[in-house]
């Protein structure tokens, strides 16, 4: 077992165990929220998914900049993996948000700036994934996608500011204003941690695939 595989198992297993413990607490121990009822529990998945999505996009930004600096394809592999996994978390955030919106607002979607910006980022990183599939040469693919990752991340501050700049229907951030009840804080942050562990485990699996892919391409070049 390689060192990376050990990490994958360690992160995956500890993430799963913590998730089960936390799920028990969220679903069975904690009571319903006063105004929203049972549906409020989506916050334990909706917000951490966004956090981890952004964390992975940030990691991809750093890896992309490092690639442009060092020209080491390992950085490119990591950036691509982080963006793919981050994009999945971004999708989880959007879907859970839509379910919550259907119950609380009565509509699946509203073109509120915050929702729109998240959707824009989802499209942007989706474009990144499509772009990679359109380029065959590894070096060219790495450079083009690294530059695109930097441009895409420039959208992030705009998304983050959106809730402050524009009138919005989205609930204001409960974390900063201290609106989250004390007994909800621990399970919330624990879920953020769990999502981080699981996100990292999946990213590492994906990095492994990228490495293997690169090795295969190298062997193929040598064979012909």
């Amino acid at each position: 077992m390689s060192k990376r595989e050990k990490w994958v198992y360690a992160l995956g297993v500890s993430g799963t165990v913590l998730l089960i413990v936390n799920l028990y607490r969220i679903l069975l121990v904690l009571g319903d929220e006063m105004q929203q009822g049972a549906i409020y529990r989506i916050i334990y998945f909706h917000v951490p998914a966004a956090f981890i999505g952004w964390t992975l996009f940030l990691a991809a930004l750093v890896a992309s900049a490092l690639y442009l600096w060092k020209k080491d394809l390992a950085f490119d592999g990591f950036a691509a993996s982080a963006i793919e996994v981050g994009w999945v978390f971004c999708s989880i955030n959007l879907v859970t948000g839509m379910i919550w919106g259907r119950i609380i607002w009565g509509i699946w979607w509203t073109w509120d700036p915050r929702l729109t910006s998240m959707f824009i980022c989802w499209l942007l990183y989706g474009g990144y994934i499509v772009l990679r599939s359109a380029i065959d040469d590894a070096g060219q693919r790495a450079t083009v996608s690294a530059v695109l990752a930097i441009f895409a991340f420039a959208d992030v501050p705009i998304v983050f500011m959106a809730i402050r700049w524009w009138r919005t229907q989205h609930p204001s951030p409960v974390l900063e204003t201290g609106g989250l009840a004390p007994e909800m804080r621990l399970p919330f942050w624990l879920n953020v941690f769990v999502f981080l562990l699981i996100g990292l485990a999946i990213t590492l699996v994906r990095v492994d695939q990228e490495d293997t892919q690169r090795e295969l391409e190298g062997l193929r070049r040598r064979a012909f």
Partner: peptide, 8 residues
């Protein structure tokens, strides 16, 4: 790529 990035 252009339209989502340009949207703001």
């Amino acid at each position: 790529l252009l339209y989502p990035a340009l949207s703001p």
